[in-house]
Design a protein around this nucleic acid. Structure first.
Lengths: 155, 155
DNA sequence: GCAGTTGGTTGCAGCACGCAACTAAATCGG
DNA sequence: CCGATTTAGTTGCGTGCTGCAACCAACTGC
């Protein structure tokens, strides 16, 4: 029974926080954020995973390839991403962050960091670190392990 | 410098976790979840805030009244919410959860709890509690205090 | 070299959302 | 008490992200 309430409370907190985080982006854009949420996530992923195929990007983001295709096209059009043909496979393309993209990403990171720092200005470093650790672990457990998509499938 | 990296890491973890939580819903629906994310949030809010006006609901959810109007209409059509005219103001309506709605909500809560419990099955009660506390505080700080929408406005 | 597979793009549809225009009901001032 | 203004909610319109399915082009295997 304790665990029951325990999990329920966590679920509530999770939904609430996820919502709050998500809603942070709309006003941020109005306030001059350089990149929208989706562009930011995608650009950051491309940046950290080096030249990467569109399909691999889609896989790591758990998005449909069509969605990635559209988003990357936007980023290419904006000059933030470069697309080169994969030398070992003529139909694939390798995505990498351009110089402009790197700048935009740095700017976006700075903006978000400042925003978050302002919002959490009275948190202790200890609590921030703790939350970071727990969130990373949570994200890992939510995606990686046994049940990313399937939740209750006997296989 | 330490704080700088500290916040950056937290921001990354936050985005990742929020994304993971959000993406949990799509497969959940496929796996038989009773309520979509939005319907769930709205129904839960109506449940906890008793009979509530549409405009107040919109305010607490930080949504446009038009969005709330549409969503609640769906819920009413589904028989999960009852809409009565506010006795003290003929243009306002009071929303409350119907009996069917209460059942659906309970079912949804149970589903989500089970899902989460499965995903976090090897977490200690201590860590779960800690995360819950931190997330609640985070959600509070992200919405309530000084900077819910405006992020950098001198006022 | 042809059949089958795989990477990516595009048409289509669904959904949530915000803004603006609108209706109806309340409230205010004369 | 009546016209003017404000307020609660609804609806039209446009936008953005998303997945699915059909499609094209390039690779792979027999």
């Amino acid at each position: 029974m304790t665990e029951r309430d325990d999990i329920t409370a966590l679920e509530r907190a999770l939904v609430r926080a996820a919502r709050a985080v998500g809603r942070l982006d709309l006003p941020a854009l109005a306030a001059g954020a350089p990149l929208g949420k989706e562009a930011y996530v995608m650009l950051a992923r491309v940046d950290e995973m080096g030249p990467i195929r569109a399909s691999d990007l889609a896989a790591t983001l758990k998005l449909d390839t069509s969605t990635v295709s559209r988003q990357t096209h936007k980023l290419v059009a904006a000059g933030l991403i470069e697309r080169t043909i994969d030398p070992v496979d003529g139909r694939a393309c390798l995505l990498s962050v351009s110089e402009r993209g790197r700048e935009a990403l740095a700017e976006a990171v700075a903006f978000r960091r400042a925003q978050l720092a302002a919002l959490l200005r009275d948190w202790s470093a200890r609590d921030r670190g703790h939350l970071t650790t727990l969130l990373d672990r949570l994200a890992d457990d939510l995606q990686q392990p046994s049940a990313p998509d399937r939740v209750a499938q006997p296989t």
